[in-house]
Write a protein that binds this DNA or RNA. Structure first.
Lengths: 196, 196
DNA sequence: ATTATAATTGAATAATGATTCATTATTCAT
DNA sequence: ATGAATAATGAATCATTATTCAATTATAAT
């Protein structure tokens, strides 16, 4: 027998994130991903059924990781919903600190994947939002969050806001501090623009 | 001579918005746009250089309209920055009331276009944000808006939030009231989640 | 009614790039 | 050292669609 040398599966995934970020999914060429991953074009197909499957794998891992972290945060009883919200936002940003290309791919391709309601990504995303919603409901119950807002809308709004500031950051990851962005987002979401 | 019958240019644009919304720009077929617009495939090329040019025209008109309205709002002296912000958000939503497909196209394709810094869409968008920023600065000057927030970040955040709630709406435009969404967005942006 | 001009058509072409597969290379059990 | 068995290669194939263009049709001026 022959053993697989190195972790080509991961190398392809990493390369794909870079190439997808640079050109967008549809313009990204398999041959270019192969080149970046230092494998032959055909080798890609030993690890992934097709091009779409590469993108799906990227998102699958993304949401699986994030959902696991969210679960832990939601279950905690030692902190207030306000702090939980902070932690969720932290966790979200943390995913991108080491990998700004992932932010770009997330921002640009998430929508297309979610559109297909049968896709696993759509389910994972819905599931994530449902769990996160529980934090908001807890905040409302405890009289800390405004009960009049539409929770479903708010959760979309904040995710969208984050997506876009991330993209802004990903364009110049070295001159902008993700920490600063993260803190601003926490502030916006809780306090808005007005002075109290 | 022969005259052009009907407004094919507009018909193609309208059809393209629908088809781009349904399948995304890259999967959208010129032949399908032609079919929807009730013209022959080749006729598209009498009005638009290529496929990309159709998308660019859609966005060009979108931002031109919106920027004109923004100008008027910013210049007003009879209302407070808070109310100006409301009007800007109103104007934004108004663009989509009659055309939910446009919302989807906006949400999905804007990023890709803006990525190309030389594109006119990128310039128009930057210009729009710059003008809108003036409202925030006015609010800060007048002691109504929090001076500690990062304005550039905030403007991306709110645009992103709006984009995403619009997409949420576009998925089921008949069951969700755009008015309600618009009001929530105004509230989120000004007050955030916390009870005062 | 005829002709010149421009608009329109849609089948044919061309380009692109995902996927396949015949071939070659590498590993390991014997 | 040998030869299964699997991994890897990348040029060839195939499918898809944007774009072109020769032919056709409609309009208006004469």
């Amino acid at each position: 027998m022959r053993k697989r040398e190195g972790n080509k599966e991961q190398a392809i995934l990493d390369a794909a994130v870079k190439v997808f970020a640079q050109h967008g999914y549809h313009r990204a060429k398999i041959s270019s991903i192969a080149e970046h991953a230092k494998v032959a074009t055909g080798s890609i197909y030993l690890y992934y059924r097709d091009k779409e499957n590469i993108l799906l794998t990227i998102f699958d891992r993304f949401w699986t990781t994030l959902t696991a972290e969210l679960h832990i945060i939601v279950k905690r009883t030692d902190i207030h919903p306000t702090e939980k919200l902070d932690l969720v936002i932290d966790a979200f940003f943390k995913m991108f600190i080491a990998n700004s290309s992932l932010a770009t791919v997330f921002v640009n391709e998430q929508n297309h994947l979610v559109k297909d309601k049968r896709s696993n990504v759509a389910k994972q995303f819905e599931n994530y939002l449902d769990i996160a919603e529980e934090i908001i409901r807890e905040g409302v119950r405890k009289g800390q969050f405004n009960p009049d807002i539409d929770i479903k809308l708010f959760r979309h709004y904040i995710i969208g806001g984050i997506r876009t500031v991330l993209q802004y950051w990903a364009q110049q990851p070295n001159t902008l501090s993700l920490d600063r962005i993260c803190n601003n987002v926490k502030y916006f979401s809780k306090n808005g623009l007005l002075i109290k």
